[in-house]
Design a protein around this nucleic acid. Structure first.
Length: 178
DNA sequence: ACGATGATGAAC
DNA sequence: TTCATCATCGTA
């Protein structure tokens, strides 16, 4: 039984959602073909005080989606060439999201380790920004009952600018064996 | 180790 | 309107 992850799932503590997403499936529909990949790596960006989060600067044109309802995609361009895929968490007006950093195919024929690779392979761009994670939008999450192995926790990547306190927090989550 | 490449936000 | 900055990746 495939279970679609809904708004209720994403309306929880951000680091909890980030960890729960490991072992779940990210499903993409491109021209009627479905591609399902297992999520292996995520990062949590939680709250207005997280200096590594875009939302720490307050609500702006770009970041207002993070203040919206959970279960909505936040997609933005980084370094002028890579789109980053995030899913908004927590209740409305609380800015938080989980960055999808890595996925693999069930038979390991595809390994995408890095947020830019994931979005490039799945043809994710700004069209999905502010869209809801459901079949209608062509990109969604499913629980297919996979066992998740041991979760490894490390500091987040590329967030040194956030200062030692926030850069050192272990909000990056990975699973090894799939 | 480093350059590509453009949207974003803050300053002027 | 201009400028510095950046949740990265591929090539060397």
């Amino acid at each position: 039984m495939d279970k679609l992850l809904n708004e209720k799932f994403f309306n929880q503590d951000t680091s909890l959602v980030a960890q729960e997403l490991l072992g779940k499936f990210l499903v993409r529909n491109i021209n009627g073909k479905e591609i399902a990949l297992i999520i292996t790596e995520t990062e949590a960006y939680d709250g207005p005080n997280d200096k590594a989060s875009h939302a720490s600067k307050g609500k702006t044109e770009r970041t207002k989606v993070m203040f919206g309802k959970p279960g909505i995609f936040y997609v933005y361009l980084c370094y002028g060439m890579h789109y980053m895929l995030n899913i908004v968490t927590r209740e409305k007006e609380y800015p938080a999201a989980v960055l999808i950093r890595g996925v693999v195919a069930q038979n390991s024929s595809i390994v995408l380790n890095g947020p830019g690779k994931v979005t490039k392979f799945l043809k994710i761009d700004k069209n999905l920004n502010t869209q809801k994670a459901e079949k209608k939008s062509g990109l969604w999450f499913e629980d297919r009952g996979m066992q998740q192995g041991k979760i490894q926790k490390t500091p987040r990547i590329g967030v040194a600018y956030a200062g030692p306190l926030w850069a050192s927090k272990k909000l990056r989550f990975m699973i090894q064996n799939v």
